[in-house]
Structure formats: structure tokens, C-alpha cells
Amino acid sequence: MKHLITTAGLDAAEIGNLLDVADHMAEINSRPVPKVPALRGRTVASVFFEDSTRTRLSFETAAKRLSADTMTFSASTSSLNKGESLRDTIETLSAMGVDAFVVRHKSSGVPEAVTQWTDAVVINAGDGWHQHPTQALLDAFTVTRSFGDGNTMQGRHIAIVGDIKHSRVARSCMDVFVKLGARVTAVAPSTLLPAGGLPGGVAVAHGIDDVVGECDVLYMLRMQRERMDSALVPELGEYSARFGLDPARAARLPAHSLVMHPGPMNRGVEMLVDPSHLPGSRILAQVANGVSVRMAVLFSLLGGAAAGLERGDS
């Protein structure tokens, strides 16, 4: 593994290895001084062509805790005219000496393209509707560690609720969860299911009431308001009535069930209950685990087995 562009190239064993390394990182993060010298002298550049707070800060925190230097490039997509200028940006930063690019872009495929323009490691931090691999890994880490299941999701039922079609988070999560053995149900109106169908093994439900009584994990996606305009959802109120998590539904969740959300949350749309009142809420744990998992990804690509083997000088 030279880059992390999509979860598609990862098998269950590789995912398990990354989660094991993340355990180390979680231990480091629990220390009074959460910093190790592992990536001293390496430079990690976050290049974000699309707004993001938590993912960018999470990656930068992860890099700093491994003692890497960080640089940040933020651009509103409107000011850049893709193609040439995007490539120029990457080549310019590469010339300054960057070891890893963390790339987010509103268009699918940009991180893949970036690998052509630099020798550095490229990590996809979300591209269009395509993939958000580190989110899926941190969610797998959160679920398996919450249940004490080791590196497997065998026997767990995970319901992903919301706009599956436009969600890179859902796409990456479904792939990783299924590979780890989970039973996954996509819960969405038919207008918000991907036209190309769902990955093998993923079931469909058309209302949150079908899953809320028996799922181990209720994974709520953000309802992206911009979808309202395109008439995919007739009305927010109707969406909330069928797909929102309200107090009555929360009360029907099994006692051990987890509630997760990749953020940012739309209170009053998909979340009609205060998550801090849900005993099973893992939403803040997801954020904390995000740092550990991104440290594991950075270390594995820049300093771990993969890096050494790529260079062939083990």
C-alpha cells in the first residue's frame, strides 16, 4: 500500500493491521504528553479544495502527534480552475519537499490524479461522492473497540441511515463493514439510493422504524440540505418523520446499541434527539478515534512496513 485512495484495495487483514496500529496510537493519545518522534523530519501537507474542519484538523493533529511537520493549503474551489492549476499546486508543494499529501476535493478522482503528479504518499480525505477511507476506518475502529470484538464485525448488524447516494462516507463504510463481516442495511428513500445499486451483501430498508429495534449500530448520515433543491427529498419534515432519530425511536434501540454520526450533525433534521442524552452515542468517540486512526494511516504509509517494502530496502 503506497497511497490510501479508496478502501477497495484493502482486504480484511490489511484493515485489521491498521486497526491494530491505531490501538498503539490510542495509547499514545491517552498519555499526558501525547507525542512520539516516529515521523520526525517528515512533512505532511493538507490540501483541501473543499471545506472541512474536523477532517483537516484531525489529520493535522495526527501528523503533529507523530512529530511530522505540517503545512496547510486551503482553497475555495471557485478560485481554482482545476486541471492545470490543481496540478501546479501539487507540483509546487512537492518541490518544497512534501512526504504526504492529504487531499480533499469536491470532484471524485482528484486524489487518484494527484498520485500522478508527485512521488509523495497521497491520502484521500474525501473526494466527491466517491470515497472517504479514513472515515470508514475510524468508524470500524469505533465499532469493534466499543464491542470488544477484536478486528471483526461478524454478527453485528449496522444500519446506515440517510443519503446513501451522495455520501462518500456511506460508500467507504459499506465496503469496510461488509469486508469485516458485518450485516449492513442501507436505510434511505429510493431517490437517495445509488443508481448503480449497492455493494453485494447490503440490504435495503425504506424507513428507520424497520431497523431501530434490532440494529447493533445506528449510523446516521448528514442530510445534505443542498439535495433539497434537486427535489430528491420533497420536504425536510417528511424526511425527518421517516428517517430521523427522535426520542421515541431512540428508546426502542437495544440497550447495547451504538449511535454514530460522521458529522457535522443537522440537529432537527436527522438528529431529533440530543446525542448527549443517548447512552449509546459514540459521536465524540468517533472524533477522538479519528486522530488515532489517521496516525495509524500516516505511520503505516510513511514509516511502517508498507513504506519500507515499497522502497525495497528491508
Partner: peptide, 22 residues
């Protein structure tokens, strides 16, 4: 103690963390 994050040969050879520090 796991020493993998402190090794001086990181990226010269594969460094795979063994088991977490406690």
C-alpha cells in the same frame, strides 16, 4: 513498552508495532 515509534530506523526497514505500551 513498545519502542516502534521511537526507533531510529523507521522507513529504513519495515517497522510494525507489536503490542501497545502499558
Amino acid at each position: 513498552v513498545d519502542v516502534s515509534m521511537y526507533r531510529d530506523d523507521i522507513s529504513l526497514r519495515p517497522v510494525v508495532p507489536a503490542a501497545p505500551t502499558s
